[in-house]
């Protein structure tokens, strides 16, 4: 059986909120290392990969592999009933028909309990090869969100060019063009404001802004976001969570004109 207790419902609320517009029905794969999710969007150009390590829960118990097939719209409806600071416990039997969610208020004696019916989801699993990326950029997640939103006002696509000079986000649209360039930057007092560019070779790729703006819904989960780029491979956008847990998005590049 599964029993996983989160100190704050907020974490799961934010994760689900960040991915629910990209993917609808997902298997939450539970085993003794934690709860993982991998799902592609309908057009097969974006993939979300979530890992909530067992250390992110206290306690965490999962005796055998359990796949919880959950519709994220349904999960969102139930999670709305949880306060951000509630303690959230997920429970399921070994061959479950439902997943049970319990929300406990730390301040009052209120306990709420919901069951969500599970779905049988036949989901393809993709193996993502280990990649040595040509460029890795760590930057404030709010800055990345702002750049994507600002450029989306002009264009559907953004080119991300990474060189010794820094990283340049540029777009061209009907009304004109725009770009934002960031250089490496260290803020000793506020490390969350750091921009770190790790470059082995220059790289330039074009991506759909609609998807990037969607990924940025995860910004509240982490002060920093990591962008990993190599020519002709999908972009990795990673939001690191506590205890080595993470929320990652992959996006296929746009090719040709």
């Amino acid at each position: 059986m599964l029993e996983a207790r989160l100190e704050q419902a907020n974490l799961l609320k934010k994760v689900v909120d960040a991915i629910k517009d990209l993917v609808q029905d997902c298997n939450f794969d539970c085993n003794d290392s934690g709860i993982a999710l991998q799902a592609m969007d309908n057009s097969h150009v974006a993939l979300v990969s979530m890992m909530l390590k067992s250390e992110s829960f206290s306690p965490f118990r999962c005796d055998r592999n359990i796949a919880l097939g959950i519709n994220l719209t349904s999960l969102t409806k139930v999670l709305r009933a949880a306060q951000n600071e509630d303690i959230l416990t997920l429970k399921a039997e070994d061959a479950p028909d439902v997943v049970n969610l319990v929300f406990e208020s730390a301040e009052s004696d209120r306990i709420s309990e919901y069951d969500i019916k599970l779905m049988d989801i036949d989901q393809e699993h993709l193996g993502i090869p280990e990649t040595e990326y040509a460029a890795t950029i760590s930057m404030p997640s709010a800055e990345f969100q702002r750049i994507c939103r600002d450029l989306m006002a002009l264009s559907e696509s953004v080119s991300i060019e990474c060189s010794k000079e820094g990283v340049k986000f540029a777009c061209q649209g009907d009304i004109g063009s725009g770009s934002v360039t960031l250089r490496s930057h260290t803020n000793v007092d506020k490390p969350e404001m750091n921009v770190e560019i790790d470059l082995t070779e220059p790289v330039s790729l074009t991506f759909s802004l609609k998807y990037l703006v969607g990924f940025c819904k995860a910004s509240s989960l982490s002060g920093q976001v990591k962008l990993c780029l190599s020519n002709e491979v999908p972009l990795l956008v990673e939001y690191a969570l506590a205890n080595n847990s993470y929320l990652r998005f992959y996006l296929a590049p746009k090719i040709g004109d």
């Binding site: 993939l47 193996g127 040709g256």
Partner: peptide, 14 residues
């Protein structure tokens, strides 16, 4: 118009 290959071109089905 630019196109996007789907992710099956990059990742392996397991």
């Amino acid at each position: 118009a630019p196109f996007q290959k789907d992710l099956y071109n990059y990742f392996i089905k397991t």
